[in-house]
Computed example of a mutant assay.
Amino acid sequence: MSKRKTRSVIRLTASYVVLVILAICSIYPALWIIMGAFRPGTALYSKTLIPKSLTLDHFRELFNSRIILFPQWYMNTLKVAIFSMLLGVLLTLLTSYALSRFRFRGRQNALSVLLVLGMFPGFMSMIAIFLLLKEMQLLDTHVALIMVYAAGAPLGMTLISKGFFDTIPRSLDEAARIDGASNFKIFTHIILPLARPILTYLALLQFVGPWGDFIFARLILRSKDKWTLAVGMWDMVSSNQNSNFTLFAAAAVLIAVPITILFMLMQRLLVDGLTSGASKG
């Protein structure tokens, strides 16, 4: 066997070993949480991965407990995530379409500002946002969460969606304008039908963000019946002296199921939207 072939085999073997190790590191914690959701008792620790007996008591407790308002938290999070997704995607699409198709003074500066602002973490502006919402009397409301989540969407996703719109031939716009179509009609009847991959990508990202956000929701929401899932689950563990981890695991499984299903069903469109949006800047 030649040296080149030996190096190729070693490199390929090392790649598979690294991939197997990464897969184990990714799957094992998730599998432990899933098994913990069906494990009797309150302790998440166990000598074996698979419990000797399985139970659904933790799932029943989530929906029957008067202290843990899990169904209410679930609906609150679903409402905030859906409306944030709709408004955030709309703002992102309009912003990216304007920056991609129109040429106006300050366009390059606007792109630079979006790029720079997108580099800063969102929690840096939380104090200012908190004071602003307090003056507007929007604290402890879901409207405040929806407004902030939706307004922040263009900062992180405009450049990617603009890159996707740049891949759509401008000749389609010009042909539509010759036929008398307005910019809004071109956007709704030509651009959006061709933008299904990036639309799926934006919708999933804008849905997942509010779905799992804890820091901002904990800062704004004060009433227990208005909490989202992240805030409620944090309180679920902290108020029980960090002992009821199997109940926490059951809630984590229920939270992860819809997101996992969405990613599995839309995986192809998600990848197409990401790769196409990154091909042009």
Rank of each mutant, 00 (worst) to 15 (best):
1 M>A: 09
2 S>Q: 07
2 S>W: 02
2 S>L: 02
3 K>I: 09
3 K>E: 14
4 R>M: 09
5 K>T: 07
9 V>A: 15
12 L>W: 12
17 V>W: 04
20 V>W: 06
23 A>D: 02
24 I>R: 02
24 I>P: 11
25 C>Q: 11
27 I>M: 07
30 A>S: 10
30 A>P: 04
31 L>I: 07
33 I>E: 06
35 M>D: 01
38 F>E: 03
40 P>Y: 00
40 P>V: 03
41 G>N: 05
43 A>Q: 11
48 T>Q: 11
49 L>M: 13
49 L>P: 14
50 I>L: 09
53 S>H: 12
56 L>S: 06
56 L>T: 10
56 L>R: 03
56 L>E: 01
59 F>P: 15
60 R>D: 10
61 E>L: 08
63 F>D: 12
66 R>Q: 15
67 I>A: 14
70 F>L: 01
72 Q>S: 15
75 M>S: 05
77 T>H: 06
79 K>V: 12
79 K>N: 08
80 V>M: 04
94 L>W: 01
96 S>W: 02
97 Y>H: 12
99 L>F: 09
99 L>E: 10
100 S>T: 05
101 R>E: 08
102 F>K: 03
105 R>D: 09
108 Q>V: 05
111 L>C: 08
112 S>R: 13
113 V>C: 15
115 L>E: 05
116 V>N: 03
118 G>L: 11
119 M>Y: 05
120 F>Q: 00
122 G>T: 04
122 G>D: 08
123 F>N: 11
124 M>T: 14
127 I>G: 03
127 I>C: 02
133 L>A: 11
135 E>I: 00
137 Q>K: 11
137 Q>H: 13
140 D>G: 01
141 T>C: 03
146 I>R: 07
147 M>V: 15
148 V>G: 00
150 A>V: 10
152 G>N: 13
153 A>L: 03
155 L>V: 08
156 G>A: 08
160 I>G: 00
161 S>G: 01
164 F>L: 00
165 F>Y: 15
166 D>R: 14
167 T>V: 08
169 P>K: 00
173 D>R: 01
177 R>I: 11
182 S>M: 02
183 N>C: 04
190 I>C: 03
192 L>A: 08
195 A>P: 10
195 A>K: 05
196 R>C: 02
196 R>N: 05
198 I>Y: 06
198 I>H: 10
199 L>R: 12
201 Y>K: 00
201 Y>F: 12
203 A>L: 06
205 L>A: 10
208 V>C: 00
211 W>Y: 06
212 G>Y: 07
212 G>A: 09
214 F>P: 10
215 I>E: 03
218 R>P: 02
219 L>W: 01
219 L>I: 05
221 L>G: 14
224 K>Y: 10
227 W>A: 13
228 T>N: 14
230 A>F: 09
237 V>H: 07
240 N>E: 05
240 N>P: 04
241 Q>S: 12
243 S>L: 15
243 S>W: 09
246 T>I: 03
246 T>K: 08
247 L>A: 08
248 F>N: 04
249 A>F: 05
249 A>C: 07
252 A>P: 01
254 L>C: 04
257 V>F: 05
259 I>E: 06
261 I>P: 00
262 L>Y: 08
266 M>G: 15
272 D>H: 05
273 G>N: 05
274 L>E: 05
276 S>T: 09
277 G>F: 01
277 G>Y: 01
278 A>M: 13
279 S>W: 09
281 G>V: 14
